[in-house]
Design a protein around this nucleic acid. Structure first.
Length: 701
DNA sequence: ATCAAGCTATTTTTT
DNA sequence: ATAGCTTGAT
């Protein structure tokens, strides 16, 4: 056992052997960050820290999994019964903390976790309740407001007071109801997991103490992406022992829109004045010419820790920048090149898994998927519709969640008439009204259906539904989850329902297969978990990575990877294609219009470039379809910045402003006037606007 | 209750 | 271009 520290370079060694006190590791891209963390864990153990007293926190499950594997490999066999180091994401860490102290916060221990889809459903419900039309505030936008508020620890009341403008006011009002609903349903959304943890720590020192006492060492990966709540949690947990090691790269902070604040890593030394700072600047990943590009690019950002990545791998070919006619040609060309790489000559043959296509928005991969399929090249699209997003899976999970937590109203509403059992929308409406007027959860008013003016048949169906759930709830814990799910599916005749609804060839079959996969997942979960519970399984399902399933089935191993720049963080590939490097896409139009978003976009570009080990190809098009119409595109300013053409970069930015700034700003809300004339005609804004203003004035006076 | 046709708004990134 | 939703007909 033990980590061969001699394999490390001096900076890495310092980071690994500074075992106590606060430590900031500024780890540039490809400098062996994961290695440092895992070696450090091994080193701590070697010097007597019991593994289970070490907590390492990552941002994704994937990172956690990888780190766990690597750490365990380094640690070697551990004595029977000894617990491994705890390596988990912020979110699952918080779930565990909250389950232990839920009562203190007034939540049931079995609180449900709402994922993005559930949140959206709840948002829709709430907006309907306060009778706001979708056009004022769409569910997604409301969730944006709410998430921001939660991340700032702003209560609905405070939000309402601070709200400026109609939309914000409506959002604040909706926020209050959203919170009330969540709370009444004994449920938390993703933000709550963090928020409630900070509240717990703030209001219940004994709980904070208990949690902080579980560990003697705390390591945080990707520290540049911590938001305010995560930051609070880290502080609370590290306060006692002060053995806090944070690792990150301010140049790779790309989650500002989600509340991440680079300031945390930039000002780490203010919080921990005695912190040691170690810089890792030796890049082991990319060939020199690739790194050169990356360095040149990131120099254009202002607020950052000064550092320059130095290549340890000389040689290699300079990255290429290719111009394509349109997005179809772009896809065609890239895929053709990939084909060549795959065929290659015997000794330099490339495996599909060595290749990645990276893009900014989720709409971009379409053309590439088409082309890859045509060429019969295996690929995985990371982050697309996840297994757990599938309708049939959500249905089943909703049933399970209602079983675990009858208060979970979103899930209850989802299953109450799924499959159709004659409890239609109007019935549900009546029930809901009754529940709301009584101020009680929907589930508890079901037995009173009789007292409402509902037909006899409806009442008995409601009772039947309730009995069904009660029956299964009684069975909880008495049989394996997998069996329970099977029995439940039988009871509701779900397979027949699938066959009724999905008539396409093989569609019902494939959906049923997905369900079987879920049952398998349940069985698997029970096998590998010490004390399996329905809650635990649901938790996994809610927090699971989107690509978990691919990983497990090994589909990923021999496939080209397609993913967004965001999900590429932390990964590396011998051959990288970054596509659609254009104004409006890579500095995304929206972040440009918002003004201060460009630096983050640049970091995003930087992340993409630094994924590449051997070759990097950047592409842009001359024109691209938008809203069904072709639109000329402007090559991204980042391309010019990378080549040192600062002046041309500035001109590209200006051209982009001219193109997007005027066209896309105002949203024609109440314009009932025929849009076609104004937009399809020439640009003479004055000409077309004047008459309209004139009419308006006339009608006003 | 169900389905087709037609209308609409949508284009950032996700634990 | 297209998904998702409302509308109107069975």
């Amino acid at each position: 056992m033990g980590a061969p520290v001699s394999e490390l370079n001096p900076a890495q060694r310092e980071a690994v052997t500074t075992l106590s006190g606060p430590l900031l590791v500024l780890a540039g891209a490809g400098t062996g960050k994961t290695r440092v963390i895992t070696y450090r864990i091994a080193q701590l153990v070697k010097h007597g820290t019991p593994p289970h007293r070490i907590l390492a926190v990552t941002f994704t499950n994937k990172a956690a999994r990888e780190m766990r594997e690597r750490a365990l490999r380094l640690l070697g066999k551990r004595p029977r019964g000894a617990k491994p180091p705890e390596i988990s994401t912020f979110h699952s860490l918080c779930v565990r903390i909250l389950r232990r102290h839920a009562a203190l916060l007034g939540y049931p221990t079995e609180f449900s976790i709402y994922d993005r889809g559930d949140q959206e459903m709840l948002a829709r419900l709430v907006l309907r309740d306060i009778r706001v039309s979708d056009s004022t505030l769409r569910p997604g936008e409301l969730l944006g407001f709410i998430s921001t508020w939660k991340n700032q620890n702003v209560s609905p009341d405070e939000a309402r007071q601070a709200a400026e403008g109609h939309r914000a006011e409506v959002a604040a009002q909706a926020y209050a109801r959203y919170e009330a609903q969540l709370r009444a349903g004994g449920s938390m959304d993703f933000d709550d997991l963090l928020l409630q943890t900070t509240r717990l720590f703030r209001d219940h020192p004994e709980a904070r103490f208990a949690e902080a006492s579980r560990f003697d060492h705390l390591l945080i990966d990707e520290y540049q992406d911590t938001n305010r709540l995560q930051y609070e949690i880290v502080k609370a947990l590290a306060q006692r022992h002060r053995n806090l090691c944070v690792v990150g790269d301010d140049d790779q902070s790309i989650y500002g829109w989600r509340g991440a604040e680079v300031e945390h890593i930039l000002s780490f030394q203010n919080d921990w004045p005695d912190a040691r700072v170690v810089r890792l600047e030796f890049n082991y990943r990319s060939r020199a010419p690739i790194l050169e590009l990356a360095n040149k690019l990131i120099l254009h950002n202002s607020a950052r820790h000064q550092k320059v990545l130095r290549a340890s791998r000389e040689g290699g070919v300079p990255p290429r920048i290719l111009r394509m006619e349109d997005e179809n040609m772009e896809a065609e060309h890239v895929v053709r090149e990939i084909r060549q790489l795959l065929v290659g000559d015997a000794e330099r043959r490339v495996s599909p898994s060595d290749i990645a296509i990276l893009f900014r928005t989720n709409e971009q991969p379409r053309a590439f998927e088409l082309e890859l399929r045509r060429e019969k090249i295996p690929y995985v699209l990371v982050g697309g519709l996840s297994f757990y997003d599938r309708r049939e899976i959500k249905d089943v999970l909703a049933y399970l969640r209602v079983l675990a937590n009858p208060l979970d109203e979103v899930s209850l509403l989802r299953v109450i008439n799924t499959p159709p059992r004659g409890i239609g929308p109007s019935t549900v409406e009546t029930l809901l009204e009754h529940a709301v007027s009584q101020g009680r959860p929907l589930w508890t008013v079901l037995p009173e259906a009789e007292s409402l003016s509902l037909s006899e048949g409806v009442v008995s169906r409601i009772q039947g539904f309730q009995k069904l759930l009660d029956g299964f709830r009684a069975k909880l814990g008495t049989m394996p989850i997998a069996d329970l799910v099977r029995a439940l599916l039988d009871a509701i005749e779900y397979r027949a329902e699938l066959e009724r609804v999905y008539t396409g060839p093989g569609e019902a079959e494939s959906r049923w297969l997905a369900i079987e996969e879920l049952v398998n997942a349940a069985a698997l979960y029970e096998q590998r978990t010490d004390a399996p519970s329905l809650l635990g399984f649901l938790e996994e399902a809610a927090l699971a990575d989107r690509d978990d399933k691919d990983q497990e089935s090994g589909r990923e191993r021999h496939a080209v990877t397609l993913m967004t720049l965001h999900s590429a963080k932390g990964l590396e590939f011998p051959h990288v294609y970054m596509v659609g490097v254009e104004e409006g896409i890579l500095p995304h139009q929206r972040s440009v219009l918002e003004g201060r978003g460009v630096e983050e976009e640049r970091r995003l570009c930087y992340v993409g470039v630094t994924r590449a080990q051997e070759t990097l190809t950047l592409t842009f098009t001359k024109a691209r379809m938008k809203w069904g119409k072709p639109r000329p595109s402007i090559p991204s300013r980042f391309l010019m910045e990378m080549r040192g053409e600062t002046e041309r970069a500035r001109r590209a930015a200006e051209a982009a402003m001219a193109l997007f700034g005027s066209g896309a700003t105002g949203r024609p809300r109440a314009s009932s006037a025929p849009e076609s004339e104004a937009s399809s005609g020439k640009r003479s804004t004055k000409g077309s606007r004047k008459p309209r203003e004139a009419t308006r004035k006339r009608s006003a006076s």
